[in-house]
Design a protein around this nucleic acid. Structure first.
Lengths: 216, 216
DNA sequence: ATAAAAATAGGCATAAATACCCAAGTAAAT
DNA sequence: ATTTACTTGGGTATTTATGCCTATTTTTAT
């Protein structure tokens, strides 16, 4: 059996060379290209049709999600692995929704990414152990009756306000920035609180700060 | 001239092996140890007395700052380089205050860390270009007459309250936790606001969140 | 075309944070 | 011993955020 042909996309040169040296120890995997942004990744994938693409999420020009989205639309058969620092549920869920076959945390053992590539190459899925609990949440999410809302249930305006709140702006400031009445902002805040089941003093600001990374 | 002897401390295996492969290309540098937490770093530095220590900031057990602090207290001559993702002024300033000789961002070019090690080895300082603007701020800071008060001017009680505020607790909650009257907390807050020249809605909470890392 | 969802705005109440003021007891410094 | 700094507590007022309503306009979907 011939080696698995993969492409690596990550904008950190040092990390990339670490990844390379770790992967190259395994003779069953062959790195056919190494790029530092999403645009180059798409170009090389089109040109070289690798079996697997290992993508960072935070990349210039087009991020890992953007690449995965493009690949999903195309009729290419490349399997996508996300290799990232983001351990939060939102990023993970978004990745799954984009059809990725692997999700590995950057701070994991070196052997983990190699194991993931091998698994994905033979058609299996592979997710970092610390992410597996989110898989449970996903299935429960759609099946349970309680179905408490999440950030994804917010409207665009609500999300914009949540973002501005995470920057510690007041309703008045946000209203001025968006050119609407402060009362509008306050109503949006109230609606968000209801949707997210938040209550208590400054609960929304607290939420905005804690979950900043999920909508920034 | 003999090679520069260095130790590397970083908890990300893949990144560490990238760093290793990049550095090993330069024959004038020799990696004498490679560890994955601060405690091990201190042990190995004591044992092997390397010329330079390349430290990540986010590490288990003892972080990079903790290691730098210990080294500053000791009579060891090892020169410290911080290699981190944190590009904010607070982390940078804290590093400088701990006497580090180099501060390099992880997302920089691979050659940057090598250049930094070489510079520091011969007694020079080396800071990532994007950090250099903060150096200007520092010198202006200490020379200006205005000399507005900082966190260091706060009393123990005030600092404790600031810390609890950064965890988004209300005055009432803090009062309950410390077993005093809510009015006491409110007065402390007012005093802190005056000392730090803070004004406006929830200014103190905003400050507490933004500067959390400085007193956490 | 009609129904549903989203964005807009207001009234009214309570809780919390800021912004001033003042004072008493304690601890540390000299 | 006396000043100084710190901690503690209170009074009062304003601004901001939450909680719970109603209501109009605009956009979206079917």
């Amino acid at each position: 059996m011939s080696a698995t042909r993969i492409i690596i996309a990550d904008d950190h040169p040092i990390f990339r060379s670490g990844l390379k040296s770790v992967i190259e120890k395994d003779p069953s995997i062959m790195i056919v290209a190494e790029v530092e942004n999403g645009r180059e990744a798409l170009e090389k994938i089109n040109e070289l049709t690798p079996d697997v693409a290992v993508l960072d999420l935070d990349m210039p020009e087009i991020d890992g999600f953007g690449v995965a989205r493009e690949l999903q639309r195309s009729n290419l058969t490349v399997r996508v692995i996300i290799l990232t620092m983001h351990r939060d549920e939102t990023h993970f869920n978004q990745a799954i929704d984009l059809g990725v076959r692997g999700y590995v945390l950057k701070d994991g053992a070196a052997s983990e990414i190699v194991g993931c590539i091998k698994a994905v190459a033979v058609g299996k899925d592979y997710f970092s152990p610390s992410m597996s609990s989110y898989l449970l949440n996903r299935s429960r999410h759609s099946s349970s009756l309680g179905m408490r809302a999440g950030i994804s249930d917010l409207t665009p305006a609500e999300r914009r306000i949540l973002f501005l709140l995470s920057e510690l702006k007041t309703s008045k400031e946000i209203a001025a920035e968006l050119g609407v009445s402060p009362r509008t902002i306050e109503n949006h805040r109230a609606n968000i609180c209801q949707k997210l089941d938040l209550q208590g003093s400054h609960a929304l600001v607290k939420f905005a700060i804690k979950n900043k990374s999920e909508f920034a």
